[in-house]
Amino acid sequence: MKSAIVTPPETASRNALAVIATVAAGAAVYWLRDILTPLAMAIFLLIMIDGVKRTIEARTPLPRRWAGVAALALVVLAFFASIGIIVNGAAGFFGEASGVSQNIGPRIDQIIRDVYGLFHLVNPPTAQDLINSIDLRGYLASTAMQVQGIASSAFFVLVYLGFLLASQMGFQRKIVAMFPAKAHRDEAVAVFQRVRGGVEGYLWVQAVTGIMICAAAWLLMRAVGLQNAEFWTFVIFIVGFIPVLGGAVAGLAPPLFALVQFSSYWPAVILLVGLQIILFVVGNFIQPRMQGDNQNIDPVVVLLALAFWGKLWGVVGMFLSTPLAVMAMAVLAEFQGSRWMAVLLSGDGEPYADKGPRKGGKTPPKPRRKPATKGDAEAAG
């Protein structure tokens, strides 16, 4: 008979303390979500600005100072352009949709009758019956509150971003003060580089694959004749940064609107099948080849992170769920006591290829890291 595994009292106490601390941190994050969500978005934009800055420095003759100004201008303009496209696109979408608004009710009634007839059901409801059963006023009020929240959050994001950019100038001195020993300072900068590389890699893959999906989807929607295809194209690109749910919205929203716009079911069927093929090919063949070790995240962890951060921070949490999971894995993998959590978060049990045992059971030698430079310390801010 096998003996039970004995857990030392100090280990049990440490694990219980870690669970309590995790629950308390989650409660604090939820309670302070109005403050933390704009800050998280500002940090997200700061990492984007740093990546664009280094790209400009490497590929253009601009000096270091002007490269930072150009990167800031590009990211801020893109941020405002996204908000403008959403507002103007939504206005244009509803404006063009008014051309078919007179036929929406009868068309929905026809769709309901056809569905009931397909399953041999009787007494189908009408569109007016469905509308009467919905608290439309409550939904409109909730939508208005969300739009107001997005506008105020955008303002605070820019305020936080300005202060973060201003604090970068003194970050190098803070790094030196926190880590007087050069070896420890190099290790701290290496941790930041891993976090930054993971987030930038995620952004790069999602942006490139999103452009591929949008290009193919736009051609398909224009070929079918869907109204305001440009608005749907932008929606598909934005929701592509939300795991799981983004693909569902991108593959189902345009076909559902096509059901109402067209008198035939074929355009909606063509859009549904075509978009699903596009999403399947990009998601299963192109995207995995572009992902590197810094996105070695278990799919279950991606789903749990989406549910967790979506519950805490709403739509903003859904957008940031995967980058936050990447950052958590990068930080946890750097410490011996928390490396086991990074292993659980990873997809193949190896958070990073240069650390820990490989699949052959051999432990590779620890790689020599380049000493931290002044640019790395400044970038860490």
Rank of each mutant, 00 (worst) to 15 (best):
D186N: 15
A73V: 14
A40N: 02
I111C: 10
E378Q: 08
E378R: 09
L226R: 07
A333I: 02
A229D: 07
D293W: 02
A258R: 06
V235Q: 08
S152A: 12
V100Y: 06
L140N: 07
M318H: 00
V19L: 06
L77C: 07
D135M: 00
M145V: 00
I111R: 15
T22Q: 05
S82K: 05
S13W: 14
P288V: 12
L252C: 08
G283H: 05
S263C: 06
P299C: 04
V208E: 05
R369A: 06
T373V: 10
Q206K: 14
A24C: 09
D50T: 09
G105Q: 12
Y352R: 11
A154E: 02
G84S: 01
V87F: 11
V300A: 07
Q261D: 06
E10K: 12
D348I: 03
G240Y: 06
V302R: 04
D348A: 05
F308Y: 13
E57T: 07
V191I: 04
R59H: 13
P9F: 02
S167Y: 12
A181P: 07
F119N: 13
V300E: 03
A141G: 09
D114C: 08
I286R: 09
K182S: 09
L256S: 07
G317N: 12
C214I: 12
G201E: 02
Q206T: 14
A216G: 11
V302T: 15
L272Q: 03
G198Y: 00
A24S: 10
T126P: 01
D109A: 06
L344S: 09
V23C: 05
I108G: 12
L62E: 00
L275F: 05
V69H: 10
T11A: 11
F308Q: 01
P288L: 00
R113D: 03
L46A: 04
G68P: 14
A177D: 09
F163G: 06
W218V: 15
T143K: 01
P8C: 04
S98Y: 10
G92Y: 04
S264L: 07
I242Y: 00
S82V: 09
I83G: 04
N132M: 03
F319C: 10
A141V: 15
M221A: 02
W309F: 14
E187D: 05
Y352M: 03
L219M: 06
P243V: 09
W309M: 01
R107K: 11
G347E: 03
R59P: 05
Y160L: 02
A18N: 10
A181N: 11
V6A: 10
P254W: 13
V199W: 00
A216R: 12
G247W: 10
L72P: 02
V157P: 14
I270K: 12
P9M: 01
L17I: 09
A330V: 01
V100H: 07
I175L: 14
G92P: 11
V205P: 14
